[in-house]
């Protein structure tokens, strides 16, 4: 079909070498792909390779590095701050993701009811997601202030549940859970809106059929909602895991890795060592150490996508 129409079009062309050139499909494909592929190769693929190379050099700011093999990794292997950051990155990702998806799914289910002003509520809920992360992180910084925290004020002076103000960012565990709370706060809207889109594709007749068969609300949730939501859930989960794992802004804005390096994520530690510290090679080694985790998450995403197509009876196109 396509070839037939093409020959028709070719017959009607003007005899101009330029228009003939633009009718050539190969040339057109080349022209169309060049800007995007060029930019991506130059500023994404090449730096990715360069980053891996830098991880095996002793590059510093202002001095190109020389190959030193796995020396950076030998150093990191005995570096307790690095291992602390690996552990904390995994912990942060796991806890924040579970909370985000639990609460986000709940919010999506709430929004899926018939509500007045539904689109307005949906628009309001997305606001934490669109506002620049650093700027809302500054608001959290102020909410977590040791002396003037509004949460402490509520707990101590209004409700009287505690006697002392909480030192949110001064103690390692307090700081960790404060960061997780801020991350969850920011992530819920994204999860909820995406899952809501998934929920809206589930046909109400499935629920009606289940109700006629006497299914309880819990059974309807477990047997209909969850399986129907699984494909989109898998994709959103992958995105969320990748972007939580490589998070930088929140931690950098609220704690800068403190107190005593207890909240350094791998990304913030890499930045700390590479840019202010000047040790580009070591920073790159930390950044490259994140790649295996990301590859694992991406593979999961690929299989989720493939499964979705298969479920819809679609072809692999």
């Amino acid at each position: 079909m396509a070839t037939a129409t093409e020959t028709l079009a070719l017959e009607g062309r003007r005899d101009n070498w330029l228009s003939r050139l633009f009718e050539s499909k190969a040339f057109l494909i080349f022209v169309c792909m060049t800007p995007a592929v060029g930019l991506l190769v130059l500023f994404l693929t090449y730096p990715l390779g360069l980053g891996v190379w830098l991880a095996f050099t002793d590059a510093r700011i202002g001095r190109p590095g020389e190959w030193i093999g796995g020396f950076n990794y030998e150093l990191l292997f005995t570096d307790s701050v690095f291992w602390m950051s690996v552990w904390w990155t995994c912990f942060y990702t796991a806890v924040a993701t579970v909370l985000k998806f639990g609460l986000g799914l709940w919010l999506a289910l709430l929004l899926n009811h018939h509500l007045p002003l539904k689109s307005l509520i949906r628009a309001i809920i997305l606001v934490p997601w669109i506002v620049p992360t650093v700027l809302s992180a500054i608001a959290f910084w102020w909410i977590y202030d040791p002396q003037f925290s509004i949460i402490s004020y509520l707990l101590v002076d209004v409700l009287g549940w505690r006697d002392t103000y909480i030192d949110f960012l001064g103690e390692p565990w307090n700081a960790r859970f404060s960061l997780i709370a801020a991350n969850v706060w920011r992530g819920i809207p994204f999860v909820a809106i995406c899952l809501l889109a998934g929920l809206q594709t589930i046909s109400p007749s499935l629920y009606e059929a289940a109700m006629i068969d006497g299914a309880s609300p819990w059974q309807r949730f477990v047997r209909i909602t969850v399986p129907m939501l699984m494909p989109i859930l898998a994709v959103v989960l992958t995105f969320s895991v990748i972007f939580t794992f490589t998070d930088f802004q929140l931690v950098y804005a609220i704690t800068r890795g403190g107190p005593v390096n207890s909240t350094h994520l791998m990304a913030t530690l890499a930045f700390q060592r590479a840019i202010p510290g000047g040790q580009l090679g070591e920073g790159a080694a930390i950044a490259v150490a994140m790649i295996p985790f990301l590859v694992a998450a991406t593979v999961c995403s690929y299989f989720a996508l493939a499964r979705r197509k298969w479920q819809q009876g679609g072809k692999d196109d």
Binding site: P47, L48, F243, A274, L280
Partner: peptide
């Protein structure tokens, strides 16, 4: 291109800074 979207800036900023 889809995979490129999954490459986060936190990995790229050090080599990009040198570039």
């Amino acid at each position: 291109i889809y995979l490129a979207y999954l490459v986060p800036p936190s990995i790229l900023f050090i080599p990009l800074a040198t570039m």
